[in-house]
Amino acid sequence: MGEGTVLGVVIAIVGVIGSVLVARISTPVSATALERETDEAEQDELKVSREIWRRFSVLEDKVDHLTSIVEAQKEKVSTLERLLRMAMRIIRRANRRLDAVHELPEEIPRELVPYTVD
């Protein structure tokens, strides 16, 4: 599996988790529903084992770790794109100089064409 595929999968996972959290946070809760929920919670106290809470904690740590990896990869991609644009400018400048002295310009690598700034 290539780096792009792995990065895509990581971004998709983080996106799904983020959308679930946003949906949960943005759901409006009325005051009466909140009071009713509090009353029900006091009556039927939900007991969750420590193992489940530990697993949630482990999952949160993993999501935080994946988020930091994605952010680091975004920085690397941004830096690489900036370097590729710079390389494209240098090649174009060199080709203009070659053309001015009636020499054949260098061929621009196909990989750099998407980073053309002209």
Rank of each mutant, 00 (worst) to 15 (best):
R89P: 02
E71F: 11
L59N: 11
K74G: 10
R85V: 09
E75C: 05
A87R: 14
L84N: 07
L83E: 10
D64C: 01
Q73Y: 01
S68F: 06
A87N: 13
H65C: 01
R82Q: 11
E71Q: 13
D64K: 12
K62V: 00
S57H: 06
R82S: 05
S68V: 05
L83P: 07
R89N: 12
D61R: 15
K62W: 07
K74W: 12
M88L: 13
V77E: 14
T67L: 03
E71C: 04
L84H: 04
A87T: 11
S57R: 06
V58I: 15
E71S: 10
L80N: 03
E81R: 10
R89H: 12
T67P: 07
A72I: 04
R82E: 12
S57V: 05
F56H: 15
T67N: 04
K62A: 04
R82N: 02
L84S: 05
L84W: 01
K62Y: 00
D61I: 02
F56D: 11
K76M: 08
S78Y: 14
I69G: 00
E75D: 13
K74Y: 09
F56V: 05
S57P: 02
L84E: 10
H65S: 01
S57D: 02
F56K: 15
T67S: 02
K62S: 03
K76S: 12
F56Q: 13
D64Q: 05
Q73K: 15
M88P: 02
Q73S: 11
E71I: 03
A72T: 14
L83R: 11
D61H: 07
A72K: 05
E71G: 05
H65Q: 09
